[in-house]
C-alpha cells in the first residue's frame, strides 16, 4: 500500500519538527563555546555558572512555590467544577456554568492578564487587599487560568465512570462526602493527578499573565528567562532549559507509569472481585460482564 507510507512519512516529519529543536537545545547546553550556535567542544561549565546565578535560583524557587500552591488550588476547584459538569445533569444555568468553566481555556492570555491586574488594583483601592503585586496575586491568577484545564480532564474521566458504583455505596449508607473520598476520588485519582501536574507545569511556564500581575519584589522564573532572552541568547539559558525539560520528562514518565500501574491494579481488582462474586454466589445466570468501556 502506498498511502500509509506517505502518511507515516509525514508523521515522522512532524515528530522531527516537534523534537529536533528541543534536542538541539539540549546538545548545545553542553557547548564549551559562548557562541550558542558554534560547537566548541563538550563542557558542563554553563551548568556550573547556572548554580552560581543567585537571581535565577531565587526566581526558580519562587516559581516552584507558586506552581505548587496554585496547582493545588486549581485541582480542588477544577475537580469540583469537573464534577458539576459531568454529574449534576441538567440544572438551571448548566450551560452558563459550562461556558464559564471552559472560557479561560480559550481566552487569550493578554486579556486574562490585563483583566486580573485591573481587578487586583481595583480591589486594593476598594478594600486594601491584596497589598501590591507579588506572590499572592500571581498565585490567584494562576489558579484562575489553570482550573479550567483540571476541570476538563476530571470531567472527561468522570463521564466514563460507572455511576452505579457510587450509587451502590450510597445505597449501603455512605454519605455523599464519604462516597466521594472512598469511592470516586480513588477512581478518578489518575485524572486528578494529571490535572495537578498540568496546572503545575502551566503555572511554571506562564509568562504573559505573570508579566501583568507580578510586582517588582517577586519575579518568577519565566519572566526572568523572558527578559534575559530578549537581551540575547546565552548558553546558561540552554542549560536551564535542559534541566527543565529533563525534570518535566521525568515527571511525565513517572506519572504515566504510575497511572498505567493504577489501571492494571484496577483491572486485576475487578477481575478478582468478579471471580470472588462468582464463587460466593451460585447464581444460575452467568456473572455480569464488565461495563462496555
Amino acid at each position: 500500500m502506498r498511502r500509509p507510507n506517505f502518511l507515516y512519512m509525514i508523521l515522522a516529519l512532524g515528530f522531527a519538527f516537534l523534537y529536533v529543536p528541543i534536542l538541539l537545545l539540549v546538545i548545545y547546553s553542553f557547548n564549551a563555546s559562548r557562541l550558542v550556535t558554534l560547537w566548541g567542544g563538550f563542557s558542563t561549565q554553563w551548568y556550573a555558572s547556572l548554580l552560581g546565578n543567585q537571581q535565577l535560583l531565587s526566581a526558580a524557587w519562587l516559581s516552584l512555590q507558586i506552581a505548587a500552591l496554585s496547582a493545588t488550588g486549581a485541582t480542588v476547584l477544577g475537580t469540583m467544577a469537573g464534577m458539576v459538569m459531568a454529574r449534576f445533569g441538567r440544572f438551571r444555568g448548566r450551560a452558563i456554568v459550562g461556558a464559564l468553566v471552559t472560557a479561560p481555556l480559550v481566552m487569550p492570555e493578554v486579556i486574562t492578564g490585563l483583566s486580573l491586574l485591573l481587578l487586583f488594583v481595583s480591589l486594593e483601592d476598594l478594600i486594601g487587599w491584596p497589598e501590591g503585586r507579588g506572590m499572592t496575586t500571581i498565585t490567584l491568577a494562576h489558579v484562575t487560568f489553570t482550573m479550567a484545564f483540571v476541570a476538563v480532564i476530571v470531567q472527561s474521566r468522570m463521564a466514563s465512570l460507572d455511576e452505579s458504583i457510587e450509587e451502590a455505596a450510597m445505597d449501603l449508607g455512605a454519605r455523599p462526602a464519604k462516597v466521594f473520598f472512598v469511592i470516586t476520588l480513588p477512581i478518578i485519582a489518575p485524572a486528578v493527578v494529571s490535572g495537578w501536574l498540568l496546572a503545575f507545569t502551566l503555572s511554571l511556564d506562564d509568562v504573559v499573565i505573570s508579566n501583568f500581575v507580578s510586582g517588582p519584589g517577586a519575579t518568577p522564573l519565566p519572566i526572568e528567562i523572558f527578559s534575559s532572552i530578549r537581551l540575547g541568547v546565552t548558553p546558561e539559558i540552554n542549560a536551564l532549559a535542559t534541566i527543565i525539560v529533563g525534570l518535566v520528562s521525568a515527571g511525565i514518565l513517572a506519572a504515566g507509569l504510575w497511572s498505567a500501574r493504577q489501571e492494571r491494579q484496577r483491572r486485576r481488582d475487578e477481575q478478582l472481585a468478579r471471580q470472588g462474586a462468582g464463587e460466593l454466589m451460585p447464581i444460575s445466570s452467568p456473572p455480569q460482564d464488565a461495563p462496555p468501556h
Partner: peptide
C-alpha cells in the same frame, strides 16, 4: 499520542527560545 503531548508539557517559553538558535543569521 504521548509523543504529541509531551512537547506541550515542556516549557512553551523554552520551545520558542530553541528556535532562536536555529533561525538566527549564523544559526543552525
Amino acid at each position: 499520542l504521548m509523543l504529541v503531548i509531551l512537547p506541550f508539557w515542556t516549557s512553551f517559553l523554552i520551545r520558542v527560545y530553541a528556535w532562536i538558535g536555529i533561525l538566527k543569521q549564523e544559526g543552525l
